[in-house]
Design a protein around this nucleic acid. Structure first.
Length: 522
RNA sequence: GGCCCCUUCGUCUAGCGGUCUAGGACUCCGGCCUUUCACGCCGGCAACACGGGUUCGAGUCCCGUAGGGGUCACCA
């Protein structure tokens, strides 16, 4: 039998990082064995706007390269892939369940059920529905309806015995049937609920392995009951531990961003992103720009493989040493039996470490291509870029070296793209290295003269000039380097000073030095 | 609270009875390199939740305890 897995998000408007991990494991498991990965939209409860709420999810998966063999936009032989369009199949399943006595029509009002529940709780007992409003046959149903009641369909769960679920991650898990409730599978208006829909669809789509988050573990018995009663063969189940918050074991949640920001590493991650977003004019609000949402990483300029590589190791490992995986290696080595049982905390620092390593390994040409859109979106480079941009940018990327950790980091070097007369100075640096630095003005003035007479202006040449200048003046390197960097970039930190001069070229370097020298000193 | 799951350095993890004075990675702390920053290099701190068994021998098996988490919907 072919391996078929699925990822079945409900259209919530964003792709949660934990959801990505679930999708990744499903994708790897199927692809590693030549199987298929199916994307299905669980929108039984969603009303309007499914398309808008689904778009970010599809985009996120595409960005990560988690392509689906069947599902929205690609079709397939087992569609439709939206639960909202599969009502007829659910109805047929409800009818079958009703016919075989595995389900019944129930006419209790919600408050009546609630009352029973509270009563049980007060008595310190487990709640088990009395089935008082269960319609035993059509006549009984008609009588309830005549009394103005409307009916739902409930599962008629067994009340004795035990069930053993053979979970691929957890091993055997035992449940007592008596603990299970008569869950509603169809509402009075005919719409069906998740537990029924997911079983019907997983069967119809021939899903062989249901790989999903641990929060579904306790749902599994009632789903297995439906499988059994409908005569469907059982798929294999694998319940993954969820992705936990940084520094705790709670489930990572988009809503708790404020809390996470108290965590040092997490707030660093967010600030790093915010700096980039701010320069792009993007909103940094939690609803749309949130490290719990995968879109955050795309916006900031992470590499999909780095994100995937990090997520792969969150709850799974190959051995005691291997950390770096190409996409192909992931597919080759992934296995469900090496998935951990305990939840794993999301660690922003480690994610960044994977990103750094991956980005470092990229050739300059590729980095340049990744970085360019950021400059364009920030309005620093035209679109399409002028011919001179490519070699210029390539010089900058080379000089930046490992300082570029994500593509958006290029915006730290925007000073190379602003007109000389608009260069902004960092205030503290201006005061420290120029206004309050004894002799700085004179040294810079002298060096400006020297540089003005230089013909060759590559990094090696200016290095020779500067070093001989320092020697002849009898000064320290530090006395010229800092004020010079301030003049050229407006900042205290940046590339090597020789590269900086070479990149800017003679004309612009001199112009920038003149501009600083024209500043008032007080 | 009931049910279910989980428990090795701060974090991710290796470990499937002796090779564990517990290994790797990230972070952190020192140091080196150096014109700043970043990178890089060298070194360091740091863990088997606890208590009972089983066994010649337990991080590894069993049972308890504690702690953590998930779930208890006409959400998915």
């Amino acid at each position: 039998m072919p391996i078929r897995t699925r990822f079945a998000p409900s259209p919530t408007g964003y792709l949660h990082i934990g959801g990505v991990r679930t999708a990744l494991f499903n994708w790897l498991f199927a692809k590693g064995q030549g199987g298929q990965f199916i994307l299905r939209v669980d929108d039984t409860d969603q009303q309007r706007n499914v398309e808008a709420a689904l778009a970010p999810i599809l985009e996120g998966l595409r960005w990560l390269g988690l392509d689906w063999d069947e599902g929205p936009e690609v079709g397939g032989d087992f569609g439709p892939y939206f639960q909202s369009q599969r009502g007829a199949q659910y109805q047929a399943a409800v009818d079958a369940l009703l016919a075989c006595g595995a389900a019944y029509r129930d006419f209790a009002r919600p408050e009546e059920i609630q009352a029973e529940r509270e009563q049980a709780q007060e008595a310190g007992q487990q709640f088990t529905y009395s089935r008082k409003w269960m319609a035993a046959d059509a006549a009984a149903a008609a009588a309830f309806e005549a009394a103005g009641r409307s009916g739902v369909v409930r599962l008629k769960m067994p009340r004795t015995g035990e069930l053993v679920l053979q979970d691929l991650v957890r091993g055997p898990v035992r449940f007592a049937w008596a603990r299970e409730q008569d869950h509603v599978i169809q509402r009075a208006d005919g719409s069906c609920l998740y537990h029924l829909a997911t079983v019907v669809d997983d069967h119809a789509m021939q899903i062989s392995h249901v790989v999903r988050a641990e929060e579904h573990l306790s749902n599994t018995p009632r789903q297995m009951f439906i499988y059994q009663q409908l005569g469907y063969p059982l798929p294999q189940f694998a319940h993954l531990p969820y992705v936990a918050e940084p520094g705790s074991k709670h489930k990572l949640s988009k809503r708790k961003l404020a809390k996470y920001l108290k965590h040092r590493d997490f707030s660093r991650l967010k600030r790093h992103g915010d700096n980039i977003a701010a320069r792009l004019g993007l909103s940094v609000e939690a609803e749309v720009f949130n490290p719990v949402i995968v879109d955050f990483y795309e916006q900031v300029g992470y590499l999909p493989t780095a994100v995937l590589n990090y997520l792969l190791l969150l709850g799974w490992s190959l051995d005691d040493a291997t950390e770096e995986f190409t996409r192909e290696q992931m597919r080759q080595h992934f296995s469900l039996d090496r998935v951990n049982k305990a939840p794993a905390s999301f660690d922003p620092q480690k994610l960044l470490a994977f990103q750094e390593r991956a980005f470092q390994q990229l050739p300059v040409k590729q980095k340049t291509a990744l970085v360019l859109p950021y400059l364009q979106r920030a309005g620093l480079v035209c679109d399409p870029p002028p011919c001179a941009t490519a070699p210029y940018l390539s010089q900058i990327v080379t000089a930046a070296g490992d300082r570029l950790k994500v593509a958006g980091d290029i915006l730290d070097y925007e000073d190379f793209f602003v007109p000389d007369e608009q260069l902004a100075y960092d205030e503290k640096t201006l005061a420290k290295r120029f206004q309050n630095a004894a002799g700085a003005r004179e040294i810079l003035t002298d060096f400006r003269q020297e540089l003005g007479a230089t013909t060759s202006f590559d990094a090696d040449a200016v290095e020779v000039v500067l070093k001989s200048f320092v020697q002849r003046q009898g000064i320290q390197m530090g006395q010229i380097v800092h004020v010079l960097r301030l003049a050229l970039t407006g900042k205290a930190v940046g590339f090597g000073i020789f590269e900086t001069l070479a990149i800017l070229g003679k004309t612009r370097s001199l112009a920038r030095m003149d501009r600083l020298l024209a500043q008032e000193c007080d």
